[in-house]
Design a protein around this nucleic acid. Sequence first.
DNA 1: AGCGTGACGAACT
DNA 2: TAGTTCGCCACGC
Length: 113
Amino acid sequence: MATDFQRRVWEALRLIPEGRVTSYGEIAKYLGTKAVRAVGTAVGKNPYAPQVPCHRVVRTDGRIGRYSGEGGVARKIALLKKEGVYVRKGRIESFDSLLYRFEDQQVTRSEGS
DNA sequence: AGCGTGACGAACT
DNA sequence: TAGTTCGCCACGC
């Protein structure tokens, strides 16, 4: 049985578009918590992988992080590659532009100059 | 109820 | 620039 916190994390995962990645920190921010470590733990316990795209979650510095599913990190990299997200030496290529922020959904951002 | 652990992150050295 | 330390909070024992 999952906790409510974990379900919220897994729901956040569903919001990540294919071909994009996000970070544990972004998810924590989205959930309004500072418990970024707890987020990582929750993602790792995701029983719906890879149906729920837990592989699209990487570290803030652009590194892959870990993967508890079958195949481990190699599998995570392979899944990303299928979506057009390439990994070089454990790091996401063009990480900055691929990083998905949940606020991207708000299109009408005024982008204050 | 307290303690240790962890798919992390940012600061420090 | 790289490696280490500390902080964070949810969870299992």
